[in-house]
């Protein structure tokens, strides 16, 4: 489904700040794979996601979606098949538009946008139905501006919007990191539920080891732009946070950031 092969990326090449963010990364996701990505700060987790999304152009290597090379496509062109939820709860929704208008924008992903009304009675019904999954009562507030919602509500809505038109690949970039524990738990639960129901091929970056072990069928650990651990299915089930920490400490000089230590 998703194939990242021999992708490299260096930031600020030729300057004192030169940093190798990705170093010949190879990553293949089968249809329906739910992969969690962990690693210390600067390990290249988000860079992988941004390379797949087209926000960052790699210097070398190929990104393929369903056997089609998308390396040359722009971010918005790839977005026709890729759903994304960002870390910042404010980033995934349009605050001045209403809930139903935001959903309508999400609903048209991959289709042309013409001069038909964005929200109609039948669409409204469908959106309300979709919102019920969130169990936040948003289905009764369809005409409220999204800017009025709390961070947790907005992130749950972002998740629903990202998955509304069933993308080929779903990219989650620490999408629960900015939420309080209760909301983070809710969004994680919704993520598992939606991904499972729609059988979405998912790549999820997280800082939270417990979360990385708890969700998904496969886990990869990154360090200094390389994938240093790749476990799936039963092997992953057997792992405990302690094992991951041990894995981290094997890497000489690796700095495990505070958030990771706290888990």
């Amino acid at each position: 489904m998703l194939n990242v092969s021999e992708v490299s990326k260096t930031f600020f090449p030729g300057t004192v700040n030169e940093r190798r963010a990705l170093d010949d990364v190879n990553l293949q996701l089968a249809a329906g794979d739910f992969v969690t990505v962990i690693g210390s700060n600067g390990a290249g987790k988000s860079t992988v996601l941004n390379t797949v999304a087209g926000r960052i152009t790699q210097e070398k290597g190929v990104v393929e979606l369903e056997n089609r090379d998308v390396s040359k496509l722009k971010e918005h062109q790839r977005a026709a098949q890729i759903g994304r939820v960002f870390q910042d709860p404010m980033a995934g929704t349009s605050p001045n538009l209403t809930i139903e208008q935001n959903l309508s924008l999400a609903d048209r992903r991959g289709y042309s946008r013409g001069l038909r009304l964005g929200v109609t009675a039948s669409k409204r019904e469908r959106f309300a139905e979709a919102l019920k999954v969130l169990e936040l009562g948003l289905e009764d507030r369809l005409r409220a501006k999204v800017g009025l919602l709390s961070g947790g509500q907005r992130q749950a809505l972002s998740l629903l919007m990202a998955t509304l038109s069933q993308p080929k690949v779903l990219l989650l970039d620490e999408h629960t990191a900015a939420l309080d524990p209760q909301r983070a738990e809710l969004v994680t639960r919704l993520t598992t539920k939606i991904v499972k129901e729609q059988k979405l091929t998912t790549l999820m970056v997280t800082h939270n080891m417990a979360q990385a072990l708890e969700v998904g069928n496969r886990l990869i650990m990154m360090h200094e732009g390389r994938i240093i651990l790749d476990v799936s299915d039963e092997e992953k089930e057997k792992l405990a946070p302690g094992d991951l920490l041990a894995e981290f400490s094997k890497i000489k000089g690796a700095v495990v950031d505070d958030k990771t230590m706290l888990q």
């Binding site: 999304a53 971010e75 918005h76 062109q77 977005a79 026709a80 890729i82 759903g83 994304r84 960002f86 404010m90 980033a91 995934g92 929704t93 349009s94 605050p95 001045n96 538009l97 208008q101 935001n102 924008l105 999400a106 048209r108 992903r109 991959g110 946008r113 919007m161 990202a162």
Partner: peptide
């Protein structure tokens, strides 16, 4: 409207 409101978001919906 979304382009003026949140470019990152509307780009991620293929606009």
């Amino acid at each position: 409207q979304a382009t003026g409101d949140n470019e990152q978001m509307i780009t991620s919906f293929a606009v």
